[in-house]
Nucleic acid binder design. Structure first.
Length: 468
RNA sequence: UCCUCCUUAGCUCAGUUGGUUAGAGCAUCUGACUGUUAAUCAGAGGGUCGCUAGUUCAAGUCUAGCAGGGGGAGCCA
């Protein structure tokens, strides 16, 4: 028998109609379940191209007894057979098996995944096998779709993808503790005459770290190409143990010349809505599964984001609302203090009931590069707050005036020699520009309805955990 | 890092005021069943009760320390 070329299961389930019935097809995939009796076996096969399985029907008398015995949950098999309309209710088509080949046996005594569901905590302990589950298949496909949609969105509006460096020599942003990068022998590093570690003898001739943000580099590119974005891994050596933080995560940072804070907000809102619409248009099978199994309000919540404009208000106005709310908050509310998660949650989930963009924060609680307002007290920062996950985007119009930026750098004690190259962009052909950062995993958290960030990245890096 | 809860079979969990031989469902194995839908039915095997020390005639159960995990908080994306 000459075997046809392999067909992916997504194609069989999504694209085959009546005219394909009776055709010989060839599929490969992993066995999810096998049921049946002494005459007939039903094998659910999944190849990860779609959440649904294809049902393979095998007449027991046509197959070797040992082969059928080895077809257990987790095994990888190749099936050649006839595509037919399924008499069963649960699937439109099935394959009447002619030949089955065992590609990779999985010992059912030791294979850890069962037909029944597992806790997400247990699956984290077997992160090498969890992509074989419906849940992680769905999450990984949605994660891919979001990454693709991000590139598509920016490409379609004429922005350029900039590859910012992963190893950096500056700690200018002060976004958090950094991982050192060195090629020195850490048990016996070269020393200066004062006994300090001598970084001039290290690989780069200076101290280097893993990046905490590609923003400063993106600004350089924006002040040459107009609209740019970065999309890459970033690293924080903070001892953060929460369902919303990772030591290694992916960040998208668009940066735009000639955009002020209002343009920046418009872009951020358009961008988030585009991504959510993309998920609803392209990932419905996976979303329906997650909606059913984990979060019954997921799809409604995604649709609601599209229906309304985000609420835009100043930090000062937000403080007034919080003070007038009559709520009993754990942390104090006062102008000049940063907002706590409980305050953000109140604004988004209780007061407005939709995403909120807060702007014009006190300069003391924001980064040095943000555009200073005329009032001398606030900066043109913007935070986009989402239900369930809090701050999803942080951004600002940037300070483009050389003297004011330099003054702020001095006030904060940032060494000028570390940022001389950044300052030069304000010296030569400076202009109004803005940008923001989106935490990719927080987006995927929101879109999948998962509640722990460790479940939306294939290999989570958190304190005390880098096993897989 | 702080607060808090949890850790018993491969998985998810019961386990009373400390008291015989620690249970269930699912999974696994054996068998039954002529089209199943996380199949169903019957039976069997499976345990260092996280680790260490202590209290007690007696500890899965009480105490302390340690380890791992969940949730909340801080830092932030």
């Amino acid at each position: 028998m000459e075997k046809p070329k392999r067909t992916v299961i997504r194609k069989l389930l999504k694209e085959s109609g009546r005219e394909q019935f009776g055709q010989l097809v060839h599929v490969k995939g992993w066995v999810r379940t096998k049921r049946g009796n002494k005459n007939i076996a039903f094998i659910a096969v999944n190849d990860g191209t779609i959440i649904h399985n294809i049902q393979v029907v095998a007449e027991v008398r046509n197959f070797d007894e040992n082969l059928l015995k080895q077809i257990n949950t987790g095994a990888c098999i190749a099936v050649t057979g006839t595509l037919v309309e399924s008499p069963g209710q649960e699937q439109p088509v099935e394959i009447q098996a002619v030949e089955i080949e065992m590609l990779g046996f999985a010992d059912p005594e030791t294979f850890p995944l069962q037909k029944k569901g597992h806790s997400l905590e247990f699956l984290r302990e077997i992160a090498h096998l969890r992509p074989r589950t419906n849940t992680f298949g769905a999450i990984l496909r949605i994660r891919h779709a979001m990454a693709f949609a991000i590139h598509k969105f920016f490409n379609d509006i004429g922005f350029y993808y900039i590859h910012s460096p992963i190893i950096t020599g500056s700690d200018a942003e002060g976004a958090g503790a950094m991982f050192h990068v060195t090629a020195m022998d850490i048990d016996n590093p070269p020393r200066t005459t004062e006994g300090k570690v001598d970084y001039t003898q290290d690989f780069f001739g200076k101290e280097t770290n893993l990046t905490v943000s590609g923003q400063l580099e993106a600004e350089l590119a924006a002040l040459a190409l107009s609209g740019v974005y970065t999309f890459g891994p970033t690293f924080r050596a903070e001892n953060s143990n929460t369902p919303r933080h990772l030591a290694e995560f992916w960040m998208i940072e668009p940066e735009m010349a000639f955009y002020d804070i209002r343009d920046n907000m418009d872009l951020a809102e358009e961008f988030l809505k585009y991504l959510i619409r993309y998920a609803l248009d392209h990932c419905m099978d996976d979303l329906e599964f997650l909606n059913k199994m984990y979060d019954n309000e997921l799809i409604d919540r995604l649709k609601q984001i599209l229906d309304n404009p985000f609420e835009r208000l100043s930090y000062t106005k937000a403080i007034e609302i919080l003070m007038a709310s009559g709520q009993d908050f754990e942390f104090p509310v006062d102008w000049g203090l940063d907002l706590q998660s409980e305050h953000e949650r109140y604004l988004v989930e209780k007061h407005f009931g939709k995403p909120v963009i807060l702007t014009d924060y006190p300069k003391e609680i924001k980064a040095f590069y943000m555009k200073q307002n005329e009032d001398g007290k606030t900066v043109r920062a913007m935070d986009v707050l989402f239900p369930k996950i809090g701050e999803i985007i942080g951004g600002s119009q940037r300070e483009e005036v050389y003297d004011r930026l330099l003054q702020r750098i001095h006030e904060l004690g940032i060494p000028e020699k570390d940022v001389w190259w950044y300052l030069e962009t304000r010296k030569y052909g400076t202009t109004v520009h803005s940008g923001f950062g989106l935490g990719f995993e927080r987006l995927v958290l929101f879109v999948t309805g998962m509640s722990n960030i460790r479940d939306v990245i294939p290999f989570p890096r958190t304190p005390q955990n880098a096993e897989f």
